[in-house]
Amino acid sequence: MNGGAMRDQWYPVAIAAQLPQKGRDSLLLGEPIHIATDETGGARVTDGAGRILPIISRYGHIWTSLGQPEQDLFPIPEADQPGRRLVDVGSVKVRCSPLRAVENFLDIAHFPFVHTDILGSEPHTEVERYEVEIRDDVDEVWATKVKFYQPQAAKSAQGGITTEYMYRVPSPTCSILYKTSPPRPGEWDVITLFVQPLTEETCEVWPWMALFDDDSSMTDMIHFQQMIFVQDRSILENQIPALLPLDPGKEIPTRADMTSIAYRRWLKRHGYTYGAQLVAA
């Protein structure tokens, strides 16, 4: 049995509006699952023994669990806020640890080098000091007051702006990014990274967004986010070690890596180690 403490978490396995009519085989924590459409048109997910797994349909996706989740899926109140456009970005299969995928999403310092002239640009490479905490009341990792200059922060952005960010990790393979909404500066755009752990070294990434953007077409918004993720993919698939180290080992984390360190500490505290390397190589 794989996954340990991570078995009792919810994981995305399909886009709710695009359920496979003929069913689809997949993996979750290294175990076979099957996603299908039931007689009412709803989703049905079963494990390798045919056991029907619990499901939740929320945030554009079907979520399931191999274990017995004690809690509901984490809340995203912005999902119900009028005026937002909810964007199912699609899925990308990546040959990397599911924890690595989340950690990369939390890494601000790579913007100018990987997403050059879009989410960052030289010489604006400095990451200003920001705040990170593990919030015990909600048991989540939060990074706040993150500020970064971005040439094109979103599809709706007209030129460069200093974007403010908040990052949130509410479950071991999901992260939520809140960033200044270019057309509505008083609001946060919500960009999520929902990750399905296929195995310890492969994952399916299901980004989803809740944006204020009345102008861009749905196709353009999807293409923009997919372009960003494709830029990350080659980095993710070449990281060494493939698993996410929970001991710094040969790595030298700096102050800019505070969010990553908080995320790794939180994983370590809960024993969320599927996809992690426990002892430095």
């Binding site: 929970l246 030298i252 700096t254 102050r255 505070m258 360190i261 370590k268």
Partner: peptide, 13 residues
């Protein structure tokens, strides 16, 4: 010193 603090915050397993 900041890097030392970051590493020690995570520490060995």
């Amino acid at each position: 010193l900041d890097a030392m603090e970051m590493a020690c915050l995570l520490g060995p397993i």
